[in-house]
Structure formats: C-alpha cells, structure tokens
C-alpha cells in the first residue's frame, strides 16, 4: 500500500534535511500526525519565521533578526578589534567563551580554488570597508587550522597589513586537558614550534 499523499509530501520535506533518509522521514511524519495541533502549528511557524525573520548583518555578516546585529550595535563592545571567522557557528563558539569582547566578521566561506571559491566569492570587501571607516586597531584571524584556513589568513593579512593595522592569528597546539602521549605528531610539532617562555 502506498502512503496517503499528505504523508508522502511531509516525508519528502523531511528528507530534504541533512542526515534523514526514507525510514527516518516516515517515522517523523507519523509522529507529526500524532502531535497536538498546537505544537504542529508552532513548529510550522518557527520554520517560516526562522527563514523570514533572520538576515545576515550588513556589517559583520553574522545571522540576526535585526540589522545591524546585536553584537555590532552593542556600545559596550570593544570596537578596536575585529575577529574574522569562517562561518556563523564559529561566532557562537567564541561567544560561549565570554572572554572576547570585540567585534566579529563572518566570511561565509574559505578560499579554495578546488571548490570554486576565490577571493571575490567570500565576504572580504565589506571587511576592508569596515577597516577604512572604523577605528580598528587589531584584526584577529580565526580561520581553521587547515591548509585553506592558513591560505585565507595569509591572504587577508596581505590585504590588511599595508593599512597599518595589527594582524594576529590564533595559536596552534595542544588542546587543554589532553595528554601529550595521545596527541598526534603534527599537533605536537606545532606545539613545540609555538612554545612560549614561562
């Protein structure tokens, strides 16, 4: 027997989400039918509002309901530092630390010619514009520790440094609380290279 059409339509929608195949989609669809009508309506509304009410901040590229975003509007934040990250999830991760009080800039991607991403495909022009108009003294490059992350960081420092702004890069090395004996050789190598005096 085939599924009634409303169910197969719902399943089709669920299957557009990452990590969900036909069986999980069927389970979710039947679960949805048994839910309270109110919950289902809320669910549908949240889906729509997440899509409609969220924008990217026109200044930093972070995801936000109001433009400019909360961080860019916050008067208490240190406006002399901008921390550059690959995507929005990185902002969330850094915000959880609660120790960084400067501003952010989200690139929405990383330089990788293999993937077809060149300098004009990521959010670089708006960063350069910010550097001209604001009293920025330091740019922290917090791209990933991969070959592409390094290339992107080096490229950005090339563009920014001539303007006389300090450019820094996140440290590489051991993760906190980890055992040296379990660290891989390359991480250890980077940790030894980046050692500091105490």
């Amino acid at each position: 027997m085939q599924y009634p059409e409303p169910i197969s339509k719902l399943m089709d929608s669920y299957m557009k989400l990452p990590g969900i195949g036909a069986k999980t989609a069927a389970r979710l669809a039947f679960f949805t039918i048994d839910m309270d009508e109110e919950d289902v309506t809320d669910f549908a509304k949240s889906l729509i509002s997440a899509k409609r009410d969220l924008h990217y901040c026109s200044i930093c590229g972070n995801i936000t309901e109001s433009d400019p975003c909360d961080i860019c509007r916050d008067k208490d934040r240190d406006r002399s530092t901008i921390l550059v990250v690959e995507d929005v999830k990185d902002v969330m991760a850094l915000e959880r630390v609660r120790e960084y009080h400067g501003l952010y800039h989200v690139l929405h991607g990383i330089l990788s010619p293999i993937e077809g991403t060149g300098p004009e495909d990521i959010n670089i022009p708006s960063l350069l514009k910010r550097l001209q108009s604001e009293e920025v003294q330091e740019v922290i490059l917090a791209t990933n520790a991969s070959a592409e992350g390094e290339a992107t960081a080096t490229y950005l420092s090339r563009l920014i440094r001539p303007a006389g702004i300090k450019v820094t890069r996140l440290a590489h090395g051991l993760s906190v609380g980890s055992d040296i004996e379990y660290a891989d050789e390359i991480t250890l190598l980077k940790a030894v290279e980046g050692r500091r005096e105490i």
Binding site: L111, P113, G118, P119, E120, A147, E150, A151, T154, Y155, R158, L159
Partner: peptide, 14 residues
C-alpha cells in the same frame, strides 16, 4: 575566471 594575483602569491608561498 579569476584575476587576483595576490591570492596566487599566497598559494605560491604556502
């Protein structure tokens, strides 16, 4: 399709 020689320089250095 691309024009940025600075990025080529970065890749060359790496």
């Amino acid at each position: 399709k691309a024009t940025d020689l600075t990025f080529l320089e970065v890749l060359t250095e790496q």
